[in-house]
Write a protein that binds this DNA or RNA. Structure first.
Lengths: 262, 262
DNA sequence: GGATGTGAACACGTTCACAGCA
DNA sequence: TGCTGTGAACGTGTTCACATCC
């Protein structure tokens, strides 16, 4: 799960759409777009839900927050829903985006077709390495970090993507915010602190894997009625102030590793 | 937010740790590891919470599900907690992982230091392009898709990462599952269907951006007491069966764009 | 004194089941 | 008849506030 929020307590919801619903709208939109391309005119909540990987009750409730866009006994008009959801998400307008940190991940993001097709436009690629400056990635020349403020200002950018190593992330974040960015998608494995009013969402590869490992571990110690305990090394001393040598863990790299060179 | 679940309804929670708590454990672990490296012996819930970007009440409640590992009036022993959380997450053992689809994103993942330092080991890189076979990425030679089943079997791999284009994802997924994989981290923008017992987590770049756009849009239409409505193009016909030409949207690429060539 | 651990209250999210309408 | 839209029930997650113990 990617995560990270920063909103008013959702109290006094007037026309507010629940956060959980917002997070699913892109899913519905994707499924609807596929149907649209196959020229399917209408869908039932059941069909659409299954295409989006949710259950139909949830989908209907989600749509009910947007308005009554369906037809009882029939279903939803695909084209109409595509438009309504796009509008709700703000995708009927163009969102210029900058990507900071052009390593493997930054390059992958720059090449990612999903951006362009959904109202997002990569306005600039920025990296601290002077050796990269001017070299094109995904057809866009990389610019140096020095230009950051100017680029954001000139292009009216309000969304920034951070794909730098962890160590550089906060610093980049601060500059982005100072330059006027109000939404950040962070791929660096660090907690970013930002002033009120700035949105941060986080995508953390390592965390996702750790969550999988947790569940995987459970599976192992269940069905096969054997192997009750498998601990590798015994724990350190329970409480008491101590500097017990540290049992296992802590790899070769310093702080939580970076994604790639910026 | 990365997402995707597949668990029993969490009913009859015996020693079960809430899903939301599990998702935060890696965060705590990261903060604790940083403290450990600075040889800090103990932390209070307040300090640790702020380092991890959550509030202290939540953190204390989270830890209470694991056991009583703190000391009243003092705080938590850093080393001890690192060990306990690692054990809980299953990181005291080694998890071999395969990455399928070695484009920019796959390469970024292979180079990602966060894997190795947390009990994960990249056992193999797999790609369908014969031209890549044998070429080393992050020091590991890429192997051809034909070898997939053999690789998984030989290495006892139970976690797979899919970084292929959307079109190939389900097919790769099916082969992974058939070969014995029970946990999948999916970067392709598709809904994967898997049999019961297989865990899927999803990381979707495009969805995260769309959620940001939603909030960004809200900000725009708030403070500055102007610009009440800004719609670009008028909606299509409301209900009724129709094949209205499709208003805006739908970029140049076919289905939801791939991440990169596999 | 000072911090943890936790019941109880609250807020949010999901599911059920059915009324209501095409 | 068939499917949407939604109140009501339920379950999960978060926050409060304080008893408890070092």
């Amino acid at each position: 799960m990617a995560t990270g929020r920063n909103h008013r307590p959702a109290t006094s919801r007037s026309r507010g759409i629940p956060e959980a619903t917002v997070a699913r709208l892109p899913l519905y939109l994707r499924a609807l777009t596929a149907l649209s391309e196959r020229s399917v005119p209408t869908v039932s909540s059941e069909e659409l839900a299954s295409a989006a990987g949710v259950n139909s009750a949830k989908l209907r409730k989600d749509f009910s927050y947007l308005g009554s866009y369906g037809t009882r006994g029939v279903g939803y008009d695909v084209e109409y829903l595509v438009y309504q959801i796009s509008r709700e998400l703000g995708l009927t307008q163009d969102w210029p985006v900058v990507i900071v940190g052009i390593g493997n991940l930054g390059a992958a993001l720059a090449n990612y077709g999903g951006f362009a097709s959904r109202g997002f436009r990569v306005a600039a690629l920025i990296d601290a390495d002077p050796g990269l400056s001017g070299k094109p990635v995904a057809g866009i020349p990389v610019q140096h970090t020095d230009e950051l403020e100017k680029i954001i200002d000139d292009n009216g950018v309000s969304i920034g993507v951070i794909a730098t190593p962890a160590g550089a992330a906060q610093q980049v974040c601060d500059r982005l915010v100072a330059a006027g960015i109000t939404s950040i998608l962070n791929f660096a494995p660090t907690v970013l602190s930002v002033p009120e009013g700035v949105d941060v969402r986080k995508v953390d590869l390592s965390i996702e894997l750790q969550i999988l490992a947790f569940h995987e571990q459970r599976k192992a110690g269940e069905e096969p009625a054997s192997a009750p305990e498998v601990d590798t090394a015994p724990p350190a001393a329970p409480p008491a102030v101590a500097v017990t040598k540290r049992p296992p863990e802590s790899g070769p790299d310093g702080d939580l590793p970076a994604v790639m060179p910026a």
